[in-house]
C-alpha cells in the first residue's frame, strides 16, 4: 500500500488487461476508434475509413462489441451536450471512450500484433528472425 518515492503504485489494470488479449479483429478496430469519444455509427464509419473499406461492421456486431466492452469496463459512456443527430429527430447518440483498462488492453494487443508482424517480416525477408 505504501508508495515509495518516484514510484507510483501499479494500477490494477495491468494485471487485469492480459486476460482480454488477443482481441478479435472487430474488437481491436473498435477499441482503436474509441481512443477518442465516438458514437456507434461513427465507429463503423471510422473503421471503414481506417481499413479503406476492407473491414465493414454491421450494427449488430457493433452493438454486441459495445455491450461486451462496457460490461468488462474497457469503455465508458461520455456525457455529450450536443445532439448528434443532424436530422433533428432529437434522438441523442451515446458516445463511448476507452477507460484506463481499455487503453492498456489495446496497448497490449497492438504490441502483440506488432511483434508478430515484425517476426513475420524478418523471417520472410532474411530467412530467420534477426534478434
Amino acid at each position: 500500500m505504501a508508495c515509495r518515492t518516484g514510484e507510483t503504485q501499479l494500477p490494477d489494470v495491468y494485471s487485469q488487461a492480459e486476460q482480454y488479449v488477443p482481441l478479435t479483429e472487430s474488437t481491436y478496430l473498435i477499441m482503436l476508434s474509441l481512443i477518442r469519444p465516438m458514437h456507434g455509427y461513427g465507429v463503423m464509419q471510422e473503421i471503414k475509413e481506417l481499413t479503406g473499406g476492407v473491414v465493414r461492421l454491421g450494427p449488430g456486431t457493433m452493438y454486441g462489441a459495445l455491450t461486451a466492452l462496457k460490461e468488462r469496463g474497457m469503455i465508458e459512456p461520455v456525457e455529450s451536450a450536443e445532439p448528434v443527430d443532424a436530422a433533428g429527430r432529437g434522438r441523442q447518440r451515446k458516445e463511448y471512450v476507452l477507460t484506463a483498462l481499455g487503453r492498456e488492453v489495446l496497448r497490449l494487443e497492438q504490441a502483440r500484433l506488432q511483434k508478430l508482424a515484425d517476426i513475420g517480416r524478418e523471417v520472410m525477408e532474411y530467412g530467420s528472425a534477426q534478434s
Binding site: 478479435t24 472487430s26 465493414r56 461492421l57 454491421g58 450494427p59 449488430g60 456486431t61 454486441g64
Partner: peptide, 24 residues
C-alpha cells in the same frame, strides 16, 4: 427484426463477423 432501408448502400449484414454470429 430489421429491414434494410431503400437505397441503403451499407453492408448487407447486421452481424458482420463470425464471432458475433457465433455469439448470437
Amino acid at each position: 427484426y430489421f429491414r434494410q432501408r431503400d437505397g441503403a448502400s451499407e453492408f448487407p449484414e447486421v452481424l458482420s463477423d463470425r464471432e458475433s454470429q457465433v455469439a448470437k
